[in-house]
Design a binder for these strands. Structure first.
Length: 591
DNA sequence: GTGAAGGGCCAC
DNA sequence: AAACGTGGCCCTTCAC
C-alpha cells in the first residue's frame, strides 16, 4: 500500500495539520515512543490521518527547544488531541493517552479504541487475540507488518521505512473503525463501547499517577511475618516428620513444606485421612481434630504473605516517582472487570498490617469510597423482587433484615447464626451456589442446607425466578448481557451436564458482576471530569472501590465529589433500589 | 535454563 | 463427575 504522508517538524507544519484535520469527524491516531514506559523515554512521533492525508509529527525538534507541555508551537496539536472532536481512533489508546498526557500535558478526549472494541465483539472468547495485526486481519483481511514497531525511535534521523510504518498505522485506523462500528451496531454494543472508550483517559491518568507505598513500613511488616514463618515452619516440620522419625540414621529428611506432594505423603504417614486435594477449605474441617492440619493452614497463610506480598512488590516502585504504577487491563475479564498486574494491586490482603503501608504522602490525604452491596442491589434491580428491594429500602443492616425475612422473626430477634446463614446465601446466590456448597461452608447437613435455601428462595420468589430464567435462557440463547449491553457468548456442549451447569452459574453471575463493572467505569468517567483542575488524583480501583489522593485542604470536597460520581453512575443503571456509597477521608488505606 | 500446567490462595 | 463467579502471583513439577 503506497500512502501519501507529510513529515512535520515545525510550527508552520503544525498549523497545516490543524487546518487540514480539525474539521474531520474521525482521525487515525498513533504515537511512536523510545521506550514502553512514559517515565523512561520520550515520545518521538505523533501520527494523525483522515485516510487521505496523513501527518507524521516529529517531536524531537520541538523537544530540543523546551518543554513539550508548554511549547506554544504545539498548542494546536494539543488542541486536536484534547478536543472531543475529531474522534481519535487508536489501537490500545491507553498507551498513547499516557504518553500524550505525560509529555504533552493534555488528556486525549474523544477516543475510539480498536483494541477494546475488538474485545467487546469477541464477547468473552478467550482464544481470540487482539493485537493490531490480528484485529486488522480479522476485520479488514489485511496483513500488517509490525517489524518496525520495535525499531530505534530515538535515532537523530528516522529511516524512510520507519516513517512509512508510522504513517500506515494511523491510516488503516479509518477503515478499521468503519468495519468495527458495523459489527458493534449489529451486536448492539455501541453503548458499552462508548463507556469503554470514555474510561481510557481516566485509566491512563491513574496509571501515570501511581499509588504510594511506604516501603519502610512494608519492610517492617515483612520482618514480622518472616520471623513468624520461621517459627511456624519449624513447628510444622517437626509435626510432619513425627511419622517418619525412624526413617533414617542420619536424621529425618527435610520436607519441602511448599510441595503438596511431600506434605500429602507426610500426612498419610501420620495417619491423617487426607482428602483428594489439600486445599484450605477441604482441610478446614480436619483442623480441629488434627493439630498438624491447623499448623499447615497457619503455615500456608504466612508463606503466601511472604511470597506474594514480600520484597517483590518493592521492586515495582518506580524510582522516578517513588510509587507503584500497576498495569490495569481495562477489559481484564469478560464481565468487564479490570484486572491488575505488576503488581496486582487488587489482591493486597485486607489486614490492616498490609493496608496501612499504602498511605497518603505528607500533606496529602486518601479519599476511599466503595459501593455497599452493589452486586446484590443489581440483583434486586434485575429481579424486581419486592422483598429484596424492601430489605435495601429499610436502610438497616442488610443481612439482618434478610435473615428476619427468611426466618420470619423480628430484626431485633435475629440470632447471629441466622444472620450468618443469610449473609452466606446473599453472597452465594450471586455465584449460583448449590446446597452442597452451602452445607459445606455452614456445617449444616445437606437436608438442612436444602431446607434453608428453599426458605430463602420462597421469601424471594422474584429473585428465584430471575435466576432460574437466566439459567433457562442461556441454554437456548447462549448469550448474556449486562445493563450497558456488554455481551457474553457462551460456548458449551449441550450434552455435557457439568458444562451446562457451569454455563448456567455463569449466566446468573455475568450480568451482575458485569453491571457492577459498568457502573464503576461510568463512575470513573464522571469522576475524571469532576476532579479535573483540582489536586485530586485517581490512584487505585478495586472492583467496587475507588481511591483518590488529594491535598489535605481539598479532602472533604474531593470526598463529596467522589461520592457523587459513584452514586450518579450507579443510579444510571440501578433505579428501583437505593444506592449506597461509603466514603471517607483517611491517611492510610484502611477503614 | 525456560516455559507450561497444576495446585493453592489473595482480592472483590 | 461436580458441587461458587472473575482475576493474578507464587510454588512445584515436568518436559524440552
Amino acid at each position: 500500500m503506497e500512502i501519501y504522508f507529510e513529515l512535520i517538524n515545525d510550527a508552520e507544519g503544525i498549523r497545516k495539520v490543524y487546518d487540514a484535520l480539525i474539521g474531520e469527524e474521525f482521525l487515525g491516531f498513533d504515537t511512536e515512543t523510545t521506550e514502553l514506559d512514559p517515565y523512561e523515554g520520550n515520545i518521538r512521533l505523533v501520527q494523525l490521518s483522515n485516510g487521505r492525508s496523513t501527518f507524521v509529527v516529529d517531536l524531537k525538534p520541538f523537544a530540543e527547544k523546551g518543554d513539550l507541555r508548554t511549547a506554544p508551537e504545539l498548542a494546536l496539536l494539543r488542541e486536536i488531541l484534547n478536543a472531543p472532536k475529531p474522534i481519535k481512533i487508536a489501537h490500545n489508546a491507553k498507551f498513547d493517552a499516557k504518553w500524550v498526557r505525560h509529555h504533552l500535558g493534555v488528556d486525549v478526549n474523544g477516543l475510539f479504541d480498536t483494541l477494546l472494541a475488538s474485545q467487546l465483539i469477541a464477547a468473552g472468547d478467550q482464544d481470540r487475540r487482539h493485537n493490531l495485526a490480528e484485529v486488522a486481519n480479522f476485520f479488514l483481511g489485511i496483513e500488517v507488518d509490525k517489524t518496525e514497531q520495535v525499531s530505534d525511535w530515538s535515532a537523530p534521523e528516522l529511516s524512510t521505512a520507519q516513517i512509512q510504518y508510522a504513517a500506515k498505522d494511523a491510516v488503516i485506523m479509518i477503515g478499521l473503525r468503519e468495519k468495527i462500528v458495523e459489527r458493534l451496531r449489529q451486536d448492539e454494543l455501541i453503548r458499552v463501547a462508548k463507556l469503554e472508550f470514555d474510561s481510557v483517559a481516566p485509566l491512563a491518568a491513574m496509571e501515570l499517577n501511581g499509588f504510594y507505598l511506604d516501603a519502610g513500613r512494608w519492610r517492617e511488616q515483612l520482618e514480622k511475618v518472616k520471623k513468624e514463618q520461621t517459627r511456624i515452619a519449624a513447628e510444622l516440620q517437626q509435626m510432619l516428620s513425627a511419622g517418619v522419625a525412624q526413617a533414617s540414621l542420619f536424621g529425618v529428611a527435610e520436607i519441602n513444606l511448599d510441595s503438596q506432594q511431600q506434605v500429602m505423603d507426610a500426612l498419610v504417614n501420620l495417619g491423617v485421612p487426607v482428602p483428594a486435594s489439600t486445599r484450605g477449605w477441604q482441610l478446614e474441617p480436619l483442623a480441629l481434630e488434627y493439630p498438624v492440619i491447623a499448623k499447615l493452614l497457619e503455615y500456608r497463610g504466612v508463606a503466601k504473605s511472604i511470597s506474594s506480598f514480600g520484597e517483590n512488590i518493592l521492586e515495582f516502585i518506580k524510582p522516578q516517582t517513588g510509587r507503584l504504577h500497576s498495569d490495569f487491563r481495562q477489559i481484564g475479564a469478560p464481565t468487564g472487570r479490570f484486572s491488575s498486574s505488576k503488581p496486582n494491586i487488587q489482591q493486597i490482603p485486607h489486614e490492616e498490617a498490609y493496608r496501612r503501608c499504602f498511605r497518603a504522602p505528607d500533606g496529602r490525604k486518601l479519599v476511599i469510597a466503595d459501593y455497599s452491596q452493589i452486586e446484590l442491589r443489581i440483583l434486586a434491580e434485575f429481579s424486581g423482587d419486592e422483598n429484596f428491594i424492601e430489605a435495601f429500602k429499610s436502610g438497616a443492616d442488610f443481612h439482618t433484615i434478610t435473615a428476619a425475612q427468611v426466618f420470619g422473626v423480628a430484626p431485633e430477634n435475629v440470632s447471629s447464626e441466622q444472620r450468618s446463614f443469610a449473609k452466606r446465601l446473599n453472597f452465594g446466590v450471586v455465584y449460583g451456589i448449590g446446597a452442597s456448597r452451602f452445607a459445606l461452608m455452614t456445617g449444616l447437613s445437606q437436608k438442612q442446607a436444602e431446607d434453608t435455601m428453599r426458605r430463602y428462595f420462597s421469601t424471594y420468589r422474584g429473585l428465584d425466578a430471575w435466576l432460574r430464567d437466566a439459567a433457562r435462557r442461556v441454554v437456548n440463547e447462549k448469550t448474556a448481557r449486562t445493563a450497558s449491553g456488554r455481551l457474553l457468548k457462551f460456548r458449551f456442549d449441550d450434552q455435557d451436564r457439568s458444562a451446562v451447569g457451569a454455563a448456567q452459574r455463569n449466566a446468573k453471575n455475568f450480568p451482575i458482576q458485569g453491571t457492577s463493572a459498568d457502573i464503576l467505569k461510568r463512575a470513573l468517567c464522571l469522576l475524571h471530569k469532576a476532579i479535573d483542575g483540582t489536586s485530586a488524583r485517581l490512584v487505585n480501583i478495586v472492583h467496587d472501590e475507588i481511591i483518590l489522593e488529594c491535598d489535605a485542604a481539598e479532602a472533604e470536597e474531593s470526598c463529596r465529589k467522589l461520592e457523587k460520581a459513584m452514586c450518579d453512575a450507579a443510579e444510571e443503571y440501578v433505579k428501583k433500589v437505593p444506592v449506597k456509597v461509603d466514603a471517607h477521608v483517611a491517611d492510610e488505606w484502611t477503614k
